[in-house]
């Protein structure tokens, strides 16, 4: 592939350190205003509980894990993290529109694998992330980022182990990416 063209096609991302400072300030403001950090997987949890509660209310009521999130006065979707996650989506739209990255539906993958493989891996990855985030009390934003920023030992633990495991297994899945 031609290097010149590659450089011209390179998506315009902001300087990562600048992005980091911005993200740090967003996190700091979040702590200042709400007293807690950011999160993302909690919204999906609310969605799961809502769906199960709609489809099979008795079943949701019996489940010891979901029961805790069901109240009579409002839907589990009426939750801080759900609104925040919706904001993440809008923020992504804004930035994508600003930098011209919103294009037709597409799959991003290494040229050496098929679309099917990529989607399969993404699905499995999602499932694992879903299970892991429940055990870990949060995902990379809730536990690793916000947890570590608030000096939580658990947050540091999740961050180190998550990336550490990533490095350990990365070799076996290199075909997916390079």
């Amino acid at each position: 592939m031609n290097q010149e063209i590659d450089i011209q096609d390179r998506p315009k991302y902001i300087n990562p350190y600048f992005g980091g400072v911005l993200l740090g300030l967003v996190l700091l403001i979040t702590f200042y205003i709400t007293g807690r950090g950011l999160g993302a997987s909690g919204a999906v949890k609310s969605a799961v509980v809502t769906t199960v509660d709609k489809v099979a209310p008795d079943h949701a009521e019996q489940n010891t894990y979901m029961k805790a999130f069901i109240t009579d006065d409002h839907s589990p979707m009426f939750n801080w993290l759900v609104f925040e996650s919706f904001g993440i989506f809008i923020g992504g739209l804004l930035s994508g529109a600003l930098f011209g990255r919103i294009k037709k539906l597409r799959i991003e993958k290494s040229p050496s694998i098929t679309n099917k493989t990529r989607l399969f891996a993404a699905g499995i990855g999602g499932i694992l992330f879903g299970i892991g985030s429940q055990f870990g009390r949060g995902c990379s934003s809730g536990a690793a980022l916000s947890g570590t920023a608030s000096s939580s030992f658990g947050g540091l633990l999740v961050m180190l182990l998550m990336f550490g495991t990533g490095y350990l297994v990365a070799y076996f899945f290199r075909k997916l990416w390079i």
Binding site: L38, A40, S41, V44, S85, I88, F89, I90, G91, G92, L93, S95, G96, R101, I102, K103, K104, L105, R106, I107, E108, A121, A122, G123, I124, G125, G126, I127, L128, F129, G130, I131, G132, S133, Q134, F135, G136, R137, C139, S140, S141, A143, L157, V158, M159, L160, L161, M162, F163, G164, T165, G166, L168, V169, A170, F173, L176, W177
Partner: peptide
């Protein structure tokens, strides 16, 4: 949980927050 997430990270290539923004631009 962190170990499971680590494997999921390499397989899926996203974490929950980033996947929402990727959906926004059509992935």
């Amino acid at each position: 949980g962190a170990i499971i997430m680590g494997v999921g990270f390499v397989l899926g290539g996203f974490c929950p927050g980033t996947s929402y923004t990727a959906i926004a631009i059509g992935k």
